[in-house]
Design a binder for these strands. Structure first.
Lengths: 225, 225
DNA sequence: AATCGGTGTGATGAAGTTTTGAAAATTTTT
DNA sequence: AAAAATTTTCAAAACTTCATCACACCGATT
């Protein structure tokens, strides 16, 4: 789920946006000033930033410039002034959109969605764990750079493991997440697919660690030679 | 240089935008109505479309919907009305931005630049994948240099595949993008067209990879091993 | 060392998907 | 208006994947 950073010195404004954003399923963080926003962006990566222009400590343009030095996170500006100068200035700094106050929260969220759709689409999402690479957009798994064909269930299982790397996963959790909460099946079904997946992972089969009496954990470790 | 299509029934508006766009170095084409816009988009590919909502023959939303069936060209809407309804509706159809009339041409061009920068998909008249060449402007496909006649649906399908090379495409995605989001048809229709397209691609039929339980992926691979 | 409960494995038929051919329906062309 | 081309529907066939089972295996506990 996408993470949004809301930057505004007015609590009221932040609250309203937060309410709408949370409702739409976004993960929300707040900053009440420009300096706080910059430091937050240093620590963490956001998917989009909603940024007020007028703030007492550091104005939105400066914040945007600072952020752009490191990342390319999309920025939507909130402008209290409606002047063209501001708008253009905003674009020159490299903002992605702007909304003039007073604004409709619904419209703002529409713009957020539109930008996220644009920016997140072309990025080839992939995870790499040890010598295993999972390309989500192509739905291809590479083991040591070699394309490996997995069946749907094997892929889903690996996908879930990769997303929860290093976490102990109970059998129940694995089954309800990969098969579906309503799967009523044999005890050995999961084992069997673990077996198949391990076989396909070749020397990395040790990445799937058996937790006796609990379930499994996916982790990067040094395969035996 | 990027190609812009300006769609508005008012000559004055088109002229103004054209003046600014030409000054900024864009290649400009015009359409004075929705129908003309749609037919122009069928023949040629633009990098961005500036689209008025209110037009006598076919309104902007319908034009956008029609265009989106085939391509993913960015669209900026010109809205004479400032109502929120229009804005939201526009985004749902899949527009990239909108500007409310009366607008500042400078601002409009800023938005054009911002979107083009993001979508910076190099404008091409044709795509070549393996031994398959697709000439968009002529709507002709060559397999190993030999012109191959495809039916409209086959072409649309191949076109969508080629634009999304290497990406796993679900059946739903393929159907809603090639047939239209409102297609309510048989489950096996897609398969049948895949079959027909594969036949026409000759030895390159393996380029369309079946992803069991998911959909298909178009990729360049080495036929025969 | 024997037991016991949980885990790994190969085989197999069942279930689910895709492919295919052919015919019906629709649209376009003549 | 008929003919041709295209698209869609349908059902059987081919194919892949899956769940299940029986049994081997392993590791902890007694």
């Amino acid at each position: 789920m996408s993470k949004i950073l809301i930057v505004d010195d007015e609590d009221k404004i932040r609250d309203i946006i937060k309410k709408y954003a949370t409702f739409d399923g976004y993960e929300v963080e707040e900053a009440s000033g420009g300096l706080e926003a910059v430091s937050k962006c240093r620590e963490k990566e956001y998917d989009i930033i909603i940024l007020d222009i007028m703030m007492p400590d550091l104005d939105g343009f400066s914040v945007c410039k600072e952020i752009r030095k490191k990342t390319n996170t999309p920025v939507i500006m909130l402008s209290a002034r409606g002047e063209e100068y501001d708008k253009i200035h905003g674009f020159e700094v490299g903002i992605d959109d702007y909304v003039v106050k007073p604004f409709s929260p619904k419209e703002l969220m529409m713009r957020v969605a539109a930008i996220l759709k644009r920016t997140s689409a072309p990025s080839t999402e992939s995870i790499e764990v040890g010598g295993i690479k999972i390309d989500f957009s192509a739905r291809i798994v590479y083991v040591d750079g070699v394309k490996t064909d997995l069946t749907p269930k094997e892929y889903d299982l690996l996908f879930y493991f990769a997303k929860n790397k290093g976490i102990a996963l109970t059998r129940e959790k694995l089954i309800s997440n990969v098969w579906g909460y309503d799967f009523y099946g044999d005890d050995r079904t999961l084992d069997t697919h673990i077996k198949l997946l391990r076989k396909n992972l070749g020397k990395y089969n040790t990445y799937i660690v058996t937790l006796r009496g609990v379930g499994y954990r996916f982790e990067e470790n040094t395969p035996e030679e």
